[in-house]
């Protein structure tokens, strides 16, 4: 019994490892590409300006509430680093935005880091990341 379970576990891990190397489809972008597209190749630093509010554990990956804020930012974007395509949403704040803050609900394909990058008023880029665990329920129903 133990042996069987261990073997099953090893098989599962191997399968996951292989899955990680499956070539992405032509449409998909990598996290690096998505980041470069947003920053124009500039480096984003973790300077503490970006604040992410998201659950540590999401009850369902279909609908995960996320709030982002970065005081003085011109734009804030959310990446789901573990989704087939990492781009999620980009908020561009206009002159009548009272705060550089926004909330939405997003889809996460599994447990992963949510990466938030802000384009600051001076043209520099700041970022922050938070892991969100996506649980697999006992009862699909």
């Amino acid at each position: 019994m133990n042996l069987t379970r261990r073997q099953a576990l090893i098989t599962a891990i191997s399968a996951a490892a292989v899955a990680g190397f499956v070539p992405r489809s032509a449409m998909a972008t990598t996290m690096e590409e998505a980041m470069a597209a947003f920053t124009g190749g500039a480096e984003a630093t973790e300077g503490g300006a970006v604040i992410i509010t998201a659950p540590e554990i999401a009850e369902n990956g279909n609908t995960v509430p996320v709030e982002v804020a970065a005081e003085g930012a011109a734009r804030i974007t959310i990446f789901a680093s573990g989704n087939p395509n990492p781009e999620v949403v980009t908020f561009a704040f206009g002159p009548l935005a009272a705060a550089q803050r926004a909330s939405t609900r997003i889809r996460l394909a599994g447990t992963q880091d949510v990466i938030v990058v802000a384009e600051m008023a001076d043209g520099s880029y700041q970022m922050a990341a938070q892991e969100v665990k996506v649980t697999i329920g006992g009862c699909g129903g």
């Binding site: 279909n62 609908t63 995960v64 709030e67 789901a80 989704n83 395509n85 781009e87 999620v88 949403v89 980009t90 908020f91 561009a92 704040f93 206009g94 002159p95 009548l96 935005a97 009272a98 705060a99 803050r101 926004a102 909330s103 939405t104 609900r105 997003i106 889809r107 996460l108």
Partner: peptide
């Protein structure tokens, strides 16, 4: 927009959930 001036302009990808929800702050 408020009286023709931009509050927020959001670019949306398929990873935003069904029935898209947004919350933000505007100056009036």
């Amino acid at each position: 927009e408020y009286n023709g001036e931009m509050v927020i302009d959001i670019a949306i990808d398929p990873a935003v959930s069904t029935n898209p929800y947004f919350e933000f702050d505007a100056t009036v």
